[in-house]
């Protein structure tokens, strides 16, 4: 089990969000369900941006924004 920032989450792996550095900037993300405790899976990486599966939906987040989110990996999430 290790903690990495979300922009480093490799394609195809899941993680559990443990900390969001600047919650205020992420009201929009909260609407998508990106809050502490949510399970998130990276489904695609492209230059500077990543696509993540959360609550059955896929959202795209820029790396400089997902950099501020810490996820915990290494455990098999459902």
């Amino acid at each position: 089990m290790k903690k990495i920032s979300m922009n480093n989450l490799p394609e195809g792996t899941s993680g559990k969000i443990v900390e969001i550095y600047n919650q205020k900037e992420f009201t929009r993300l909260a609407d998508f369900g990106v809050i502490s405790g949510s399970v998130i899976k990276c489904v695609k990486r492209n230059k500077g941006i990543g696509a993540y599966l959360i609550k059955g939906c896929v959202i795209a987040l820029r790396n400089e924004d997902s950099e501020k989110i810490t996820v915990e990996t290494g455990v098999n999430y459902e």
């Binding site: 929009r28 998508f32 696509a51 896929v58 795209a60 820029r62």
Partner: peptide, 9 residues
Amino acid sequence: EPFSMELPP
């Protein structure tokens, strides 16, 4: 600004 967008099914 931060950018986020849904990729719909």
